[in-house]
Design a binder for these strands. Structure first.
Length: 315
DNA sequence: AAGGGCCTCAACCGCTATAGA
DNA sequence: CTCTATAGCGGTTGAGGCCCT
């Protein structure tokens, strides 16, 4: 197969890099820093195109690149981020220190994808293969069930009862306050890490999934969204990739985010692992959650206030 | 030992996004 | 606003190593 070369100049070398070329490129970049890739090869004495130099540096020579096997934690993070972002390898790579987008992409295609398939999970939809091709079956319910509410409350309460987690999420809001504050209906003060910040985040999560649900229930009149659009379609309308990446940077948050995603978009009818959160117990009678349906805005401001009054974890 | 098939991953290509003139 | 140059991204390729027969 013949392809049009990206660099048409005569004498441009392609293929595997030699140690001498690596040394020249590294020495030049250590001296002059990154950038100016177009003119770099000539200045560095390399017969390569700038693009090739940039990729060689980014994917192999950069000093902060981590080599070796992926840890189980990294694998887990990749799978979860892929479920949320899809094939956005660069965005996923920002959450895994020292790993490149290319490396993650290769690892996904050669290992993780296969492993998920072997487990009977569709690596694209991140759902059991049997459940993705059933015709005529009703989608999972979107109304919050009582067990789902309790589970959400317990999980959130226990997570937020740990200062580091609360501060982390608060930091996400304050650190990236522009977009979040702009869409906020409920938080007026993004400069102080109060319960408003937390409730704003939760409200937006809820609003995002609520948006997704209405989209999914209306696919025939919503051009631009495919029939199998996922939670992330709604979610990413409210958060930038960087913000979502930030939320996922902490592995603990991954679990929380997945819980919220699961419960808010599907009702979270499975598992019921309240026992994982023994420190805080919240009753199951949150009427505003249980009576919530897809036409309503889920007001997590109320939810957070209610939590405050019961257990005070957001104060 | 040989060779054919499979797997991995570095590197490439084409396209899009962004910045600056 | 338009055009151009550059950077970055995701999909794909293919060389080389490994494994099996």
């Amino acid at each position: 197969m013949v392809r049009t070369p990206c660099c048409k100049e005569e004498g441009i070398k392609k293929g595997a890099w030699t140690p001498e070329e690596d040394q020249k490129l590294t020495a030049y970049l250590q001296l002059h820093g990154e950038g100016g890739w177009r003119t770099l090869p000539e200045k560095a004495g390399l017969k390569r195109c700038g693009k090739s130099c940039r990729l060689r540096w980014a994917n192999y020579l950069r000093p902060d690149i981590k080599r070796g096997e992926f840890t189980p934690e990294e694998e887990d993070t990749i799978i979860k981020l892929h479920a949320l972002k899809g094939n956005k390898w660069a965005a996923i790579a920002t959450c895994l220190a020292g790993r490149t987008d290319n490396e993650i992409k290769n690892y996904w295609n050669t290992n993780l994808k296969k492993r998920l398939k072997q487990k009977g999970i569709d690596p694209t939809a991140h759902k059991p293969i049997n459940s993705t091709d059933q015709t005529g079956s009703e989608p999972k319910h979107h109304k919050l069930g009582s067990s789902g509410s309790a589970r959400l409350l317990n999980r959130v309460a226990s997570k937020y009862s740990v200062d580091s987690n609360r501060d982390l999420l608060t930091g996400i809001i304050i650190g990236n306050s522009t977009n979040i504050a702009d869409v906020s209906q409920s938080s007026g003060d993004v400069d102080s890490p109060t319960k408003n910040s937390t409730s704003t985040l939760l409200n937006q999560m809820a609003a995002a999934s609520s948006g997704f649900i209405s989209i999914q229930n209306n696919t025939s009149t919503s051009p631009g969204f495919s029939d199998n659009c996922s939670f992330s379609d709604g979610f990413t309308e409210f958060f930038s990739n960087d913000e979502i990446s930030g939320m996922y940077t902490n592995v603990d948050n991954v679990g929380l985010m997945e819980e919220l995603k699961d419960i808010l978009s599907y009702g979270g009818a499975d598992v019921g692992d309240i026992k994982d959160s023994p420190e805080v117990n919240v009753t199951d009678d949150m009427d505003f959650l249980d009576s919530w349906n897809k036409e309503d805005d889920l007001d997590l401001e109320k939810f957070v206030s209610s939590l405050d009054s019961k257990i005070g974890v957001f104060v």
